[in-house]
Design a protein around this nucleic acid. Structure first.
Lengths: 142, 142
DNA sequence: ATCGTTGCAAAGGATTTGCAGAAGA
DNA sequence: TCTTCTGCAAATCCTTTGCAACGAT
């Protein structure tokens, strides 16, 4: 979903299109990042905005399913534009780089469904390790 | 891993067996819970211990792989005794109840390995939804 | 003009840290 | 005795909230 589509959605839900909304959406990238990181990047561009506003704009977008909120086993939440394709993340322990993976998970979900009494609404799958670059860096220093 | 085995491990690593360590380990249950919850439960039992100590004891155990630290898409970390069996969690949105699932994941991991340049060290898989009890509650109220 | 939105300041929850004294080994 | 561990208080990080002014429709 792109910025224009997001704005359309917001309007349809009676929410307002503000300068700050635009700027926060502009601050989102293809990689999941924290509210703090978005805030600081905007500030560096001399964009005047409050931390609380960043959180509020993100929350609004999350509750309309326009932005995805995830956590990589950190205290800090991360936000990314909700793409059309459901995907999972590979997070590099070394440099923090995040890569997307698309996984065929029907069988996995069926398996869990059969094993439990739970009605599964969402799931969460992340992988942690070393990206290609950091693997090379490691092998050089040894 | 049981409490005795944990203490043995700690001793082997030059760490000390203190009253507080014992009490925090005693506060761990089969379900992943927050440091705050452990702290409060100990306090209710009139056990005198500091919040910081709870964190420090848990950290020590986590770094020796005696206790598992996880996050369920919350700001708060949760801790559980590291069982011998690698498992994942089903978390109920309604009542917060946590159930374990053991999943055959070799194929999943192979798939990801083939698709990416990452060297996968750990992964993380959680499911969220409604437990059996909360499903019934839902259908009654509608 | 209405009502959602913002900035500011303050509060709140989770976690960490510095330090001096307490206590395992 | 030696060094780790603990309690206490303060600090830090992430996030939320109350409120009056602002601005989009």
């Amino acid at each position: 979903m792109n910025r224009t589509a997001i704005k359309h959605q917001l309007r349809e839900n009676g929410l307002r299109l503000t300068r700050q909304l635009d700027q926060v959406l502009g601050g989102l990238t293809d990689s999941p990042q924290s509210a703090g990181a978005i805030f600081q990047r905007l500030r560096r561009k001399n964009i005047r905005i409050d931390r609380a506003t960043v959180y509020r704009v993100l929350d609004r977008c999350v509750s309309l399913n326009l932005v995805l909120k995830t956590r990589f086993q950190e205290q800090t939440a991360r936000y990314e534009l909700d793409s059309t394709r459901h995907h999972h993340h590979l997070v590099c322990d070394g440099c923090g780089r995040v890569e997307d993976v698309i996984i065929k998970e029907e069988q996995l979900l069926k398996l869990v469904d059969r094993q439990s009494d739970f009605f599964i609404r969402r799931h969460n799958l992340e992988f942690f390790g070393d990206c290609h670059r950091c693997q090379k860096r490691h092998s050089q220093s040894h």
